[in-house]
């Protein structure tokens, strides 16, 4: 995920200062991992350097002084470009699990065990996600579903592999 683009996007609705940006980000996207303020700061500096944002003003108050950032036209174009560019699908070609299964077969260990254990672990995660989904709001549900579908995809691969273990064993032994 591009934090820079996300923060830029958040600025489009109006100028904000750094802490404000962090709060907005956490609220909407940072369900699992809140942003560290340092990350916001360094990102904003980079954006400033590239001319995508400008400092709109400095708020002096009781506390430390705070910069207010505003997006530039270039910044808007950049957000536009980012949204329009499709994400490159993950290739998922390097799989630890696959390696584990083949290794188990090569060493005459029980590969099905490996798969079963993994399934159990996946399901445990899915249970937690499902539980959170049931208790959460729509945003929670969508986030969890995204994760659930990925886990499900893994599980389907697990099932498929389990069904083809015998063939795989032959192929590996050759």
């Amino acid at each position: 995920m591009s934090i820079g683009h996300t923060l830029l996007g958040l600025l489009e609705s109006g100028p904000r200062h750094g802490y404000d940006l962090k709060r907005a980000f956490d609220e909407k996207f940072g369900h699992d991992r809140p942003l560290h303020y340092g990350q916001v700061y360094s990102t904003m500096s980079r954006l400033l350097k590239n001319g995508l944002v400008v400092v709109d003003g400095i708020e002096a108050g009781g506390g430390p002084e705070r910069k207010r950032y505003a997006i530039t036209d270039e910044g808007i174009t950049d957000v536009q470009r980012w949204l329009a560019t499709p994400e490159k699908p993950e290739p998922y070609l390097q799989s630890t699990l696959y390696t584990k299964v083949v290794l188990a077969l090569l060493t005459h260990r029980d590969a099905a065990d490996v798969l079963d254990t993994q399934r159990s672990e996946h399901l445990r995660s899915m249970r937690i996600l499902t539980d959170r989904k049931r208790k959460g709001d729509l945003a929670d549900q969508l986030i969890c579903d995204h994760a659930l579908f990925h886990l499900e995809a893994d599980l389907r691969w697990l099932e498929l592999t389990a069904a083809r273990l015998d063939k795989l064993r032959e192929a590996v032994a050759r």
Binding site: R119, S120, H122, L123, R127, L129, L151, E152, E159
Partner: peptide
Amino acid sequence: THEARVAAYSDREIVVR
């Protein structure tokens, strides 16, 4: 069930093979 997403509503699972 054979669907993991449905099985995720369970407390635990057993596998039949």
